[in-house]
Design a binder for these strands. Structure first.
Lengths: 279, 279
DNA sequence: GGCGGCCATACCGTGCGGGTATCGACCCTG
DNA sequence: CAGGGTCGATACCCGCACGGTATGGCCGCC
């Protein structure tokens, strides 16, 4: 199977429309139809059900869409990593969620930079859930992830830190004097709803709570008494005097891990991971 | 990057010889030279150092060899899984090491087969270290692995069982009456050396100890008083009265896990894993 | 110095990927 | 029910890129 065929199939499977897929691929529709037919013939499997009502995926098509996307990401990763290995300054790219674990990250970067024969490390700031993708497609070599929020499926990891979560409240809120609170108590504050974050596609889920796009917005809303938020306790460094924090007793602990794609253990990467474990 | 180019590069990188690689690919040598040059141009990276002394990999070439192999395996996996999903009887393929965890496996298969809407499960017996590969390239959907012997890097896993290891001795051996022994004591038995297993490429490592190819051979050698072996305690079911076993106190415990490629969680696979956790 | 091994270059044919035009099936809609 | 619109498939043509053969250039070796 050639990557061209796979790209074509993925485009059609995503659009469920030959014309639009062809446009996206910048080719005409007939060659696309032929390519898909040829792919189906070669695989000996029907991938798409076409009739007058449109195009639908068969079971085999769903499998190929899932597996094919992963395979294409693997190809792109190979390409990008090769380019980077050949670059004049072949450093490491570390992906991290914007704003999270900033203290740990700073310590890690400082410790690693102080090591003998450390390579330059670029930091790539990602939106939520984006890290796994940039790691898989070769834009990054290593990432800081936060379980249980980020999935570490298919990655090699080492645990760097564990921490409790705290609720961020407006300063002076009645609960702010407490030693700890429960998620049920937080949910029972109708005037301080938890915010809604955008999906991967940019839309917002339904429900109450203000829509926020970044943590600056969120912190402002909290200071204004319009929302509250549950965050790892290390995020306290971003707060100021208009905020109060209280430990949430029954929220899951957050584990910060350093993660990298399996079997891509270059010497520099191994060195960085070793340093991270010593911090 | 097209898979054709990648296959060509991997062939040259493995052979380190354009002529032999071309032969392996069943094309003439000049088109192969051209294809590699074109790939290097497109990547903007020198992959191979050619001079009169032969062909060597550059750093970028090493990266592309490693990543490219994985990417090609991903493509093949997508292809195989699609074919299987389209097959008349789309079942699951479970890979396991020949002879290991047979009891657990039997229970798992029975329990799953008894479930409502279970799909057929084929068992694929693998040599040591082979399971990870068949899982990656799509010949199997799920595998039973044994840590710390098998690597689970880049796979999703759930733990099914943990067990101690025992040493298998000829019946009547002086140590056979003991409650437990240490690895040091076993190593100090010069007339009962540990056997040598073949590498992935079929050769044997140097050293003392008889060469064995399967566990039947090994068990016979032990019964004859020519070897001993350290195995998980569940392997006791394969033994007969000519063998004795003693717990090895300082051998690592063996963890049997069920493993599958990440993000390939079909409903049937999820069902099988759920069943396995209940056994 | 001639020879052989090995990769690169030159040059040629052809098959395949892509383009345009058109068909055929189906669904609206007036 | 006729006519137009939508969408995928088919027919046909063209150009190029891939693969083949022949040969060159470089180097090491006998």
């Amino acid at each position: 199977m050639e990557t061209r065929e796979l790209r074509y199939f993925v485009a059609v499977a995503e659009e469920l429309h030959f014309g639009r897929a062809a446009e996206r691929l910048r080719i005409a529709q007939p060659p696309l139809s032929r390519a898909i037919q040829q792919l189906e013939r070669r695989l000996g499997a029907r991938l798409l059900e076409r009739d007058s009502r449109g195009v639908r995926l068969t079971e085999a098509g769903r499998v190929l869409l899932r597996e094919g996307r992963a395979a294409l990401a693997g190809i792109e990763a190979a390409e990008r990593r090769t380019r980077r290995a050949a670059a004049a300054r072949p450093g490491l790219v570390l992906a991290t969620k914007a704003g999270a674990s900033s203290e740990l990250l700073a310590k890690l970067l400082a410790a690693y930079a102080a090591e003998p024969d450390a390579v330059p490390v670029d930091v790539l700031l990602c939106g939520p859930g984006e890290q796994e993708r940039v790691l898989r497609d070769g834009r990054a070599d290593v990432a800081l992830l936060h379980r249980p929020f980020d999935s570490t499926a298919g990655l090699d990891t080492e645990v760097l830190a564990e921490e409790r979560q705290v609720v961020v409240l407006p300063a002076g809120h009645p609960l702010s004097g407490r030693r700890d609170v429960t998620t049920a108590e937080i949910a029972a504050l109708p005037d301080l709803p938890l915010p809604r974050w955008p999906d991967l596609d940019g839309g917002y889920p339904d429900g109450p709570g203000p829509q926020v796009r970044d943590s600056v917005q969120l912190m402002q809303l909290i200071a204004l008494g319009r929302a509250c938020a549950i965050v790892p306790e290390s995020a306290r460094t971003h707060l100021h005097e208009q905020h109060a924090t209280v430990t949430v007793s029954d929220a899951p602990t957050v584990t910060t891990v350093i993660a990298w794609p399996p079997q891509s253990r270059s010497p520099a990467l191994a060195h960085l991971v070793r340093t991270a474990l010593g911090v």
